[in-house]
C-alpha cells in the first residue's frame, strides 16, 4: 500500500535527516516508528505527504505507479486527502470550534467558497456527528478548541484525520503532550479505529512501552537509518541499545 524507495532528505543546513529509507507497509498494518529524538521520525512521515519535500527517492502510494514525489500541486492535494495526519501538539486551530476543526478534514473535497461560508455537504456533517459520538465529544462540538483538555483535543485531532476517510494515517508523537492515562486511551483509540476501518498507520512514538503494547510491527530509526524492523516481541536489550544507546533496558525489553 505504501512503499518508499531510498527516501532521502538533506536539510539546507547540510543535516542528513534521512539516509535512504526503504519500507513497505501493507494494507491495514499499524506500524510504530521508534527512535531517539533527531532520528528523523518526524521528517520521515512528513516526506510521505510532502509537508517536507524529500531530497531524493520515491514514495509509492496505493499502487506501484503512483509516485507521490513526482506529483504536481493539485494531484498532491488529492493524495493528501487520502492520508490523514495526527499531530504531537494536537495542532487544532485553536480559535475555531470543535465542529469546524473536524470539518476542516474535508477541505480537500469542498470548494473554497463553500468552505469559506462553512457550508459542508450534509453527508460530511453527518459523518462528523458520527465521529464525534464515537470519540465521545458530541456534547462539546460548539466549544472552541482552546477550551478543551489535552486528551479531548487529541480526540478531535483524530476525528479530523478520520473524516478525510483516509487510506493511511500518519501519526506524529500522539502522546507526547499527554499524561500516561490519556496516552494509553489515545493509543487504544487510534488502534481500534484503524482496525475498524482496515487503515494502515505509521505512528511516531518515543515511548517504547506504548509502542510494544499497541503496534503490530516496530521500526527502529537511528540517525536517519532503519536499524530494526520486526515484531514487538523481537525488541531485545541489544536492539534497544542499538537504537537508543547504552542504558539499562532490562525492564523494557520484550521477554
Amino acid at each position: 500500500m505504501l512503499k518508499t524507495i531510498n527516501l532521502k532528505k538533506v536539510y539546507p543546513n547540510g543535516e542528513e535527516a534521512l539516509k535512504g529509507i526503504n519500507l513497505e507497509i501493507p494494507n491495514g498494518q499499524v506500524v510504530a516508528l521508534i527512535g531517539p529524538s533527531g532520528a528523523g521520525k518526524s521528517t520521515f512521515i512528513r516526506t510521505i505527504n510532502r509537508l517536507v519535500e524529500p531530497t531524493s527517492g520515491k514514495v509509492y502510494f496505493a499502487n506501484e505507479k503512483n509516485d507521490i514525489t513526482s506529483l504536481n500541486k493539485s494531484k498532491l492535494r488529492k493524495i493528501r486527502r487520502q492520508i490523514g495526519m495526527i499531530f504531537q501538539e494536537f495542532a487544532l486551530v485553536e480559535r475555531l470550534s470543535v465542529m469546524e476543526n473536524v470539518l476542516s478534514g474535508r477541505l480537500g473535497y469542498v470548494g473554497f467558497w463553500n468552505s469559506f461560508f462553512r457550508k459542508f455537504p450534509q453527508k460530511d456533517i453527518e459523518e462528523a456527528f458520527r465521529l464525534l459520538q464515537r470519540i465521545g465529544l458530541e456534547h462539546m462540538l460548539d466549544k472552541r478548541a482552546d477550551e478543551l483538555s489535552g486528551g479531548q483535543r487529541q480526540r478531535v485531532g483524530i476525528a479530523r484525520a478520520l473524516i478525510q476517510n483516509p487510506m493511511l494515517l500518519l501519526v506524529d508523537e500522539p502522546t507526547a503532550s499527554l499524561d500516561p492515562k490519556n496516552s494509553r486511551q489515545i493509543m487504544r483509540l487510534i488502534c481500534e479505529l484503524c482496525n475498524e476501518r482496515n487503515l494502515a498507520a505509521i505512528i511516531n512514538i518515543h515511548d517504547v512501552f506504548l509502542a510494544q503494547n499497541f503496534a503490530e510491527r516496530i521500526i527502529g530509526l537511528k540517525a536517519g537509518e532503519i536499524v530494526y524492523d520486526g515484531k514487538p516481541s523481537g525488541l531485545s536489550e541489544a536492539i534497544l541499545t542499538k537504537i537508543y544507546g547504552e542504558e539499562d533496558w532490562s525492564k523494557t525489553a520484550a521477554n
Partner: peptide, 28 residues
C-alpha cells in the same frame, strides 16, 4: 503556530482554504 497551519495543509486543502482555516483564525 506552524503546526496548526501544517495540519490544515495536510488535509489536502487548497492555498486559499489553508489561509482561511489555518492562518486567518490565528491572526484575527
Amino acid at each position: 503556530n506552524k503546526s496548526q497551519a501544517e495540519a490544515i495543509k495536510s488535509t489536502g486543502s487548497s492555498w486559499f482554504q489553508w489561509v482561511n482555516y489555518g492562518v486567518q483564525p490565528q491572526v484575527m
